[in-house]
Design a protein around this nucleic acid. Structure first.
Lengths: 246, 246
DNA sequence: TCAACTATGTCCGGTAGCGCACATATCCTG
DNA sequence: CAGGATATGTGCGCTACCGGACATAGTTGA
């Protein structure tokens, strides 16, 4: 388990940061669910029935083109929540949320969740901070898609996933990675091959192992660090106002 | 003036949608400012002193790479607000806001603005809806950057700008458009040339005129309509709850 | 009115990634 | 353990876009 991830089983960073009283109010409604790889949590324009706080699962936010091709715009793990639209007011979004790595999540029905959100206490504050972090992730994805190579983007994707995992091994085919990155499967194959030759990863048939994380970090484009630093700033320092910012 | 734009001088859609009492409270603090082309409203990681509600101006949100190249992640006009981070809680963002089309904006100092936002009334509700719309725009930009040609993206950019303008003429060099799209100036030249040959636009030295809007709309990729439809849904229907949604 | 500047047009070779075809390797299941 | 399904490797021609060089055409100001 990589040391840099303060993540334990069934632990969600947002829920964990709630004050005891808020947590107590929500707790009776919390339901731990197991999410299998590929599960679609919501389709584009679906009205949601729950919000999901991933713990060990990782969820990918994808846009599906009319012609069937897709591209990932963001990834949510134990550091976030799936179902932003529920509290932002729009109720739906034009993208799809798919389980990218099997695991658990804590889900809440809308009724109690909204009730608590409308108290405009810590839950409210944390979720807006998280939304800003997601905004940064999405906008940096836009930049990265425009300016960087498939190999660099694969590094970014691997690191983003690794940050949200307890293990060094991702259960994931190159085909699926290609769908997320919005590139050809062959392109991922070639890039993965190069990363393997450089000793940064190992892989075999549906399993990728992070072998040299520092190496990946020095290969990746700046986009990864920008998102990582900004997310930490928002969800670590700002999350706990007792730690002075700057 | 294109008929589809319900935009009058010094009119911002968000401010206009506020109930009379909220507007009255904010009004004494509203300051109309004129923004020249190229003005930087804030730099990456700047702490803001005001939020800006563009009326006739258009503001571009850009990420500047370490090597100086840039890419646009979103555009804000009379339908939005510049300075999301102020109310989302993060105070700063890693991008830059630049005036893409000269015009006016109404700005508010943080103190009064935050006071009103914290009442959690209509201002609060509208700004969260707007933030969701911006999220959609950014994520669709990510998709478009990945999957579509420079020509289609130029169409998208022209339509997004046109939607926020009172006139059919954009004062804008191809060089600047290239900076926003994150492509070479020559690429924009070639794409613009083709659009001109197809009779969709006219242009000369720093001025582009939309000649055939329906034609542009049939050339552009689906990304434009997705953002447009979703923004309308969020900021028209949801904005006025008396209009039933769906 | 001419010179300097800026915006646009055009051509070049180079390359990354696409779409396709097909070979090989691994896994699963009957 | 054989055969089908799935995952990965590799080659080929094609296109879009890049990086650079340079020509041309408006625009501005001395």
């Amino acid at each position: 388990m990589p040391k840099h991830i303060p993540c334990t089983v069934d632990h969600n960073r947002l829920l964990a940061a709630l004050p005891a009283d808020v947590y107590k109010r929500l707790e009776p409604d919390m339901e731990s669910v197991s999410l299998a790889l590929g599960t679609v949590i919501y389709e584009a324009n679906d009205t949601l029935s729950h919000v999901y706080f991933p713990t060990t699962a990782i969820v990918s936010l994808l846009y599906m083109m009319e012609n069937g091709t897709s591209a990932e715009m963001g990834v949510v793990g134990y550091d976030g929540v799936v179902g932003i639209a529920v509290f932002m007011g729009g109720d739906t979004t034009p993208n799809r949320a798919v389980v990218q790595s099997a695991g658990n999540a804590i889900r809440l029905e809308l009724k109690h969740f909204r009730e608590e959100f409308r108290r405009v206490g810590e839950l409210h504050r944390l979720l807006l901070l998280y939304t800003q972090a997601l905004l940064t992730q999405m906008s940096q994805t836009a930049v990265c898609n425009r300016l960087h190579s498939v190999e660099q983007q694969l590094c970014r994707w691997l690191l983003l996933s690794h940050d949200r995992l307890e293990s060094n091994e991702l259960v994931m085919t190159q085909e699926l990675i290609a769908n997320m990155l919005g590139v050809r499967r062959e392109g991922v194959s070639v890039a993965a091959h190069r990363l393997r030759q450089a000793g940064l990863i190992h892989y075999k048939r549906g399993h990728i192992t992070i072998a040299d994380r520092p190496g990946l970090e020095s290969t990746v484009c700046e986009c990864y660090q920008v998102v990582k630093t900004e997310t930490d700033r928002l969800l670590t320092y700002q999350m706990n106002p007792s730690i002075p910012v700057e």
